[in-house]
């Protein structure tokens, strides 16, 4: 099932490019804030799945193009990101595992705009990533397939990254936490439809040029290993979001006027644009220096 939020954060199912309104099935969930709806639906999924499926029966829905899609997990309770985590198409030994937290305030959805801040970053990169949405409260998951039972579903995520900020000699992760630096979409594909999250093709285009094109089988630490690591540190709760890192071969700048599209096989494709009030420019192409440096470890 492909779950979406659309218009005023209504719950819908995406089927064959049509959106079916299933909000009647979750009308009893009293929300003080619409952005809390998806975590609440996920937390009660065992109870709600049947009613949601029944609510969709017989509906023809409306064309996807006629609604305003929202990020499917618009304010995750926690937004965790893997540090590195790809082998970069090499056969190298894997590097130590690490993660960091990104601002949950950064999330935007399909059709939204990444706004580059006036801060003097050396560059703003796109990092297309597989996003994992947590389904149930979990601590100390095993690094094996069983960990996938804690996953609710998967989505596309771009970890927009401002480089060269922070203190001299000490890289800062805060350049990834500007508002609008977390585009996500188009839907959450439920885990039952993803036989192996480490066999998915990830692609990102900027202005029609294919930049990133890699398979999640290149991950250093697989999705279960990522879940094990994160849940050793902290309790994961429904709606928590983990982005699994990116393969840097294909990263490039985001700049004013860019139109980016990201797709993961089976999940779908979403779009966002980029605005920079300072109109800075970078070479509109893959950052080969960065790719080379990361390949070197």
């Amino acid at each position: 099932m492909k779950l979406v939020l659309y218009n005023n954060y209504r719950l819908g199912i995406l089927r064959d490019d049509r959106v079916l309104d299933v909000s009647s099935a979750v009308a009893d969930l009293k929300m003080s804030n619409r952005t809390r709806l998806m975590p609440a639906v996920i937390a009660q999924w065992d109870k709600l799945r049947g009613p949601i499926e029944r609510a969709s029966q017989g509906l023809t829905g409306v064309p996807l193009s006629s609604v305003r899609l929202r990020a499917p997990d618009p304010r995750p309770p926690k937004l965790l990101a893997c540090f590195g985590n790809y082998k970069e198409f090499t056969q190298r030994e894997r590097l130590p595992q690490d993660m960091f937290l990104k601002s949950p305030e950064s999330v935007i959805g399909d059709g939204d705009t990444v706004e580059l801040p006036p801060h003097q970053a050396t560059i703003f990169h796109h990092e297309a990533e597989l996003g994992v949405v947590i389904g149930r409260r979990s601590k100390d998951l095993p690094p094996t397939r069983e960990a996938l039972d804690a996953v609710f579903g998967y989505t596309c995520f771009v970890d927009v990254s401002g480089r060269g900020l922070g203190r001299p000699g000490q890289a800062s992760r805060m350049g990834k936490s500007f508002d609008t630096f977390g585009p996500m979409g188009p839907c959450i594909l439920t885990a039952d439809e993803v036989p192996d999250p480490n066999k998915l093709q990830v692609r990102l285009w900027v202005n029609g040029e294919l930049r990133q094109d890699y398979n999640t089988d290149d991950m250093e630490y697989t999705v279960p290993e990522v879940l094990a690591f994160a849940s050793h540190y902290m309790t994961l709760v429904p709606g928590d979001f983990i982005c699994c890192g990116t393969n840097h071969q294909g990263l490039g700048p985001l700049q004013d006027g860019d139109r980016a599209e990201m797709e993961i096989q089976g999940i779908g494709r979403f779009r966002f644009s980029v605005q920079d009030s300072l109109k800075r420019t970078w070479a509109r192409e893959i950052d080969r220096e960065m790719a080379q440096r990361v390949r070197g470890g």
Binding site: K78, L101, S103, G166, S172, S177, M234, T235
Partner: peptide
């Protein structure tokens, strides 16, 4: 919803100059 922590933001009783500002996030689950 967010816990932002300032990175090493003390002068250590006057022993070091004022550092540039930086932050990191800490898990609110903690």
């Amino acid at each position: 919803a967010k816990i932002l922590c300032a990175v090493a933001n003390y002068l250590e009783l006057g022993a070091r100059p004022k550092p540039p500002i930086d932050f990191f996030f800490k898990s609110p689950e903690g």
